[in-house]
Amino acid sequence: MKRQFLRLSVAALLVATAFTACKKDKGETNEEEVITTLQLTFTPQGGGSPLVYKFEDADGPGGAAPTIDQIVLAPSKSYDVALQLLNKTANPVEDITEEIEEEAAAHRFYFTPATGSNITVSGLDKDANGVDLGLHSVWTTTAAATGSVKVTLRHYPAVPPNKAAADAVDSQKSGTDIEATFTTKIQ
């Protein structure tokens, strides 16, 4: 009887320890990486004030739907475009662009205008190996039109990264980090 009681109290002690050990604060902080905002800054070549358009999902995946600006550009013009990625759920706002620059050889942006959009994207900046990166690009418009441009960020997980110039946007070597489609209007 005494032995049984001893066993029971050991069990009870174990239960108590387990419970205090795994007690965690509820609603703890999120440590995940969130990209809320893809921001494109268009600077007209030959002068003019810059235009800013963004894809923004302020609360991250789920919840409120993202807001997507329409990209409105002037006809027959070239723009220098700078791309920025931000995490606005962090305070202060976290600039993820810097991390992409640091790992340029493992990242690649693709810009895919829909046919008839009258936009061509060229002049992408390169990583250290001379392969397209895309944080900077040149967008050239022709006649007035409406259409869309899909911006895709692909990430190469291999170490060292095996990014090559010929890789297609759906290459098996890379995975999608960002896929955002903007509607466009040339007027």
Binding site: A18, E33, E99, E103, H155, D177
Partner: peptide, 21 residues
Amino acid sequence: YDIVRASSSKTPQLNLSISTL
């Protein structure tokens, strides 16, 4: 884990722990 940038790649993107008695 997910493929993310270096600064957060060492920590899991989702860490679940379940204690059951």
